[in-house]
Design a binder for these strands. Structure first.
Lengths: 366, 366
DNA sequence: ATGAAAGCGCTAACAA
DNA sequence: TTGTTAGCGCTTTCAT
């Protein structure tokens, strides 16, 4: 299998046709429409191709001609490697890959680093459509995707009226969770959330920032919490909310520390992601707080680690979301109006939530 | 951002040029060489583009012209979703994605399902090169990749003389591991390995199959074990080796069961992957075998789960392998001969290996 | 069953 | 600074 043969692209479909003394159509047919020519001729074409080192029709030229790239683009708001390091993203992508594979189309991960505003990569991608995974509404890469004359499907966020989307009902899910925590009796609650905007803001979040968040999912979760808490008589403006730019359990740890330092009377930590919650559990452990006796911790997503630590959380069908996104994208040609797919979620009550230790509910410790 | 504007691709670079009364070069320059024309003209071009709904130069046409796709292809031997479900693959891909992103090139996952021999997907991919991740030497997709006039880099396997490769020294690593197990005193050893060929063969493996394996990595590990065991006086032909086609801990479990049922006197299970080893540990637990007192279990790879269960294993730098593969591929233009990168491995002695409990070698515990 | 003609949309010399 | 000229390599009516 010598690579040295291919030093310079030598043969083309045209040169092969010339060599054979047939038309280019015939050679093309030999590859694309075997039934359109005699088996003998086809064999002769293929043999000569082999001899000349002709590697078959050039995919790019073919794409240009057919206006089909045979690939779906994927846009992430994070570094590309996030696709393989964040458990939620990995699950989503597994489903997406499944869907693409079934349809025989490739999955083109676009190198849209959030650092350099390299929108060019979006324009350079030879794809038939894009899946956009959870980006802020002001992401320039998103704008670039939407400016391209190919269909797009958004997963989770942002909510765009005229673009297909697959997601969950964050309000319903969050409300269920909030009611669970409130139902346990918690009234001193702290919240840990993921980034709300493209600029780094590690720390407490005021109401105005919550309301102007560019990450719709986080915003909706906070809004739902605010609503549920208020309904239970908790003054949302007094509920501490700590934001973290990076999504890692280490950041969850530090966020929990920051919150508990400032609000030691908090009895429950509601986290808008499992990763953050896992970090919060670490921090609780470090402080000698027993979960859920001294502190209730909840997450969101339902990743494998959540199961492992028996986290109380909302499980969402990440893999199915990926599949649905693929199907939505690949069927978008048959449709006219935008379509929205909302998948179900499930409240999972684990071992990390319990009633608070209050004066009313005295607890006789070890 | 109405998508309805783009019902039919209306504007092209040429039509835009015509509208503006300038040449196509000028429009092209407005996008690709801003310094080659006056800012005012450029602005006028961009404005008119906006007005006409011209989405910028078509990426495919540009690729055809420039002979650059701006993407690296990835070929897996498994379903595409394997890239996101196998921990080892995920780690490798994280590194690969990192490397691609740094270079600003996309990562095109090729839908090369092992079921349908859909080699066409390889031919359809508009990429500047391929990374081939751990495939058998007789994989038709691999042949398709090598037939294309673009560079290729193989990760791990197969070993091809004239193709760049990044891998580890499986023989050295396996030998270290074998010597550790032998050094503990084990002489009744069983082996669990991954698939050795493209056809399913779940069960015991005879020598001839070991020697004719198409998965070089597995083969080399077995060979190294054979050599080390023989040197220690263990008759390799009597060492039971169980193969599993699917790579999952459930399969590791059943493989361990199969082996222990037939060879109850085995005191150590050497597994050629951590995943299999994790399954073996499960099975040991199910049988009430204490590890490492009743049974020693070792793995290979160094995935996160291995740490979690304190597995004795060989840690290989999976992420770095990905990075190295990207760098190798993206620099292959500057090189002439094929290049081989061999990364270091580390023997990690965890809590799953210990001396055997035998009559001949009484052991005085801690 | 095969061939001729006509581009797909773009960029890169080179010239002006 | 801008335009002219030539393709990149292929597929696809339509005619033979």
């Amino acid at each position: 299998m010598g690579r040295s043969i291919h030093v310079r692209r030598p043969a083309t479909l045209a040169s092969l046709a010339a060599e054979l003394g047939v038309s280019r159509t015939t050679v093309s047919n030999a590859y694309n429409r075997p039934d359109q020519l005699s088996p003998e001729l086809r064999e002769r074409v293929l043999q000569t191709a082999e001899r000349l080192g002709y590697p078959g029709p050039d995919p790019v030229a073919r794409s240009l001609r057919t206006r089909k790239a045979g690939a779906a683009g994927l846009l992430l708001t994070e570094n590309l490697s996030y696709a393989f390091s964040d458990p939620g993203a990995v699950n989503f992508l597994e489903g997406l890959a499944l869907g693409c594979e079934d349809a025989g189309v490739g999955l083109h991960l676009v190198p849209a680093s959030p650092l350099r505003e390299d929108v060019a990569a979006v324009h350079r991608a030879g794809v038939d459509g894009f899946v956009v995974y959870s980006v802020p509404d002001d992401d320039p890469h998103l704008a670039a995707v939407l400016s391209r004359p190919v269909p797009a499907v958004v997963c989770d966020q942002p909510k765009l009226d005229d673009v297909d989307r697959v997601g969950i009902d964050d309000e319903v899910a969050t409300t269920k969770l909030a009611e669970h925590v409130l139902g346990l009796g918690h009234r001193h609650i702290g919240v840990l959330c993921m980034r709300l905007g493209r600029e780094r803001n590690d720390g407490f979040v005021r109401i105005d920032r919550q309301n102007s968040a560019h990450y719709h999912v986080q915003q909706r979760r906070l809004t739902a919490l605010a609503k549920a808490f208020s309904a239970a008589g908790v003054d949302w403006s007094k509920v501490p909310v700590v934001e973290r730019f990076e999504h890692s359990s280490a950041q969850g740890e530090s966020a929990a520390a920051q919150l508990l330092d400032a609000y030691p009377d908090v009895t429950a930590l509601v986290c808008t992601s499992d990763i953050l919650a896992v970090g919060a559990l670490q921090e609780a452990k470090r402080r000698g707080l027993r979960v859920p006796i001294d502190l209730t911790v909840t997450g969101f997503d339902g990743i494998a680690d959540a199961d492992r630590v028996e986290l109380t959380t909302v499980r969402q069908p990440l893999k199915e979301k990926g599949r649905a996104a693929a199907e939505l994208l690949l069927s978008s040609a048959d449709r006219t109006g935008p379509k929205l797919i909302t998948l179900d979620t499930e409240l999972v009550i684990g071992a990390t939530s319990g009633p608070p230790r209050t004066a009313e509910q005295p607890w006789f410790g070890p």
